[in-house]
C-alpha cells in the first residue's frame, strides 16, 4: 500500500465538492489555490455566501465603497453564471444598497429558488444603521415571487430589511427557523405566520417595530425558541401560552 502519495487528490471531484461544501464559503474559496484539481471545486460548493462585507470596507469613503460594491455584485453575477450543481443548501446574501442592483438581486434569488435552496438568508440592512437608535428604516427590498413559489423546501429563512407578503407564507410549509429583522410587523401578521408555518420551531425578531403587545397562544404550536431582540415592544406585554411554553425563551437584549 502506498499511503504517502497524494491521498485525497485521488478522490473524484464530486467528493471534493462535498468536502468543500462543509466549509464556510470564504474558506471554500481559498481551496482554489491548493492544487489544479481543487482550482474550481469551490465554485460548486453548496453553501453560498454573497456577503458585501467580504468586499466593501466600511471604514472607507462611500465613493470607494460604491466601487467595491460593484466588484462584489459582479463577483456574484459571475459565480451564479458558472455554477453547475442542481441543488444548493444555503444561500446568504448581504447587500446594503439593493436598490442599486435590483435585477442582479432578483437573478440571485431566482438562482437560489430554482435550485431548491434549503436555507435562505437575506440581509439588506445597512451597517451604518444604529441598532440602539429609535429611528426605523423602510424595508430596502421586497421578497420576489419565485422565493414563495419554490418555498416548500425552505427550512430556514432570514429576512432583514426585506418586506414580504404574509398571505404567501403558507408556501413555506416546511419552515423550521424564521428570523425577521429591521421590519415593521404587527402581532396579527406574526400570528398569521405561525398559523401558516405549523413546523416552525425557532422564531427570532430583531429590531422589529409596530408589534405593541406580544402575545402567542397557539395550542398546536411547535415553537421551541423565541428571541425578541431590540424590538419596539412593551416587554411587560409579552404573553406566551402553548404546550411547549416551558421551553420558550424570551431574550430581552436591550441597549
Amino acid at each position: 500500500m502506498n499511503s504517502n502519495i497524494d491521498r485525497i487528490s485521488n478522490l473524484p471531484s464530486s467528493l471534493l465538492i462535498i468536502i468543500a461544501s462543509f466549509l464556510p464559503f470564504k474558506e471554500a474559496a481559498r481551496t482554489s489555490v491548493l492544487s489544479k484539481q481543487w482550482l474550481n471545486i469551490w465554485r460548486d460548493a453548496m453553501h453560498i455566501q454573497f456577503n458585501e462585507t467580504f468586499f466593501v470596507k466600511s471604514d472607507e469613503p462611500e465613493e470607494n465603497r460604491k466601487v467595491q460594491r460593484e466588484v462584489f455584485i459582479n463577483f456574484a453575477r459571475q459565480f451564479i453564471a458558472n455554477y453547475s450543481q442542481q441543488v444548493i443548501k444555503t444561500l446568504g446574501l448581504a447587500c446594503s444598497k439593493p436598490g442599486d442592483f435590483l435585477s442582479d438581486i432578483q437573478n440571485i434569488l431566482m438562482f437560489a429558488s430554482s435550485r431548491d435552496v434549503r436555507e435562505l438568508g437575506l440581509d439588506f440592512s445597512d451597517p451604518t444603521w444604529r441598532e440602539q437608535a429609535l429611528e426605523n428604516h423602510q424595508a430596502a427590498f421586497e421578497l420576489p415571487l419565485p422565493v414563495y413559489e419554490h418555498g416548500q423546501v425552505l427550512r430556514s429563512l432570514k429576512l432583514f430589511s426585506c418586506s414580504f407578503k404574509v398571505s404567501n407564507f403558507s408556501n413555506f410549509c416546511s419552515l423550521k427557523t424564521l428570523s425577521l429583522g429591521w421590519i415593521k410587523i404587527n402581532m396579527g401578521s406574526i400570528s398569521a405566520i405561525l398559523d401558516s408555518c405549523p413546523l416552525l420551531e425557532n422564531l427570532s425578531l430583531k429590531k422589529c417595530w409596530d408589534i405593541e403587545n406580544f402575545e402567542i397562544s397557539k395550542p398546536g404550536s411547535r415553537l421551541k425558541s423565541l428571541v425578541l431582540e431590540k424590538c419596539d415592544i412593551a416587554y411587560d406585554g409579552v404573553l406566551i401560552e402553548g404546550p411547549k411554553a416551558s421551553v420558550l425563551q424570551v431574550l430581552r437584549k436591550r441597549g
Binding site: 497524494d6 474559496a29 482554489s32 489555490v33 468586499f55
Partner: peptide, 25 residues
C-alpha cells in the same frame, strides 16, 4: 495541503495570481 497530502502543482507565479484574483477570500 499537508493535511490532505496534496502536491502543489502550481508555479509560484500561478499561485500568486490566484491569491490576487481571490484576494477577498
Amino acid at each position: 495541503r499537508s493535511f490532505f497530502g496534496i502536491d502543489n502543482d502550481f508555479t509560484s507565479e500561478e499561485e500568486a495570481l490566484l491569491r490576487e484574483e481571490h484576494a477577498w477570500a
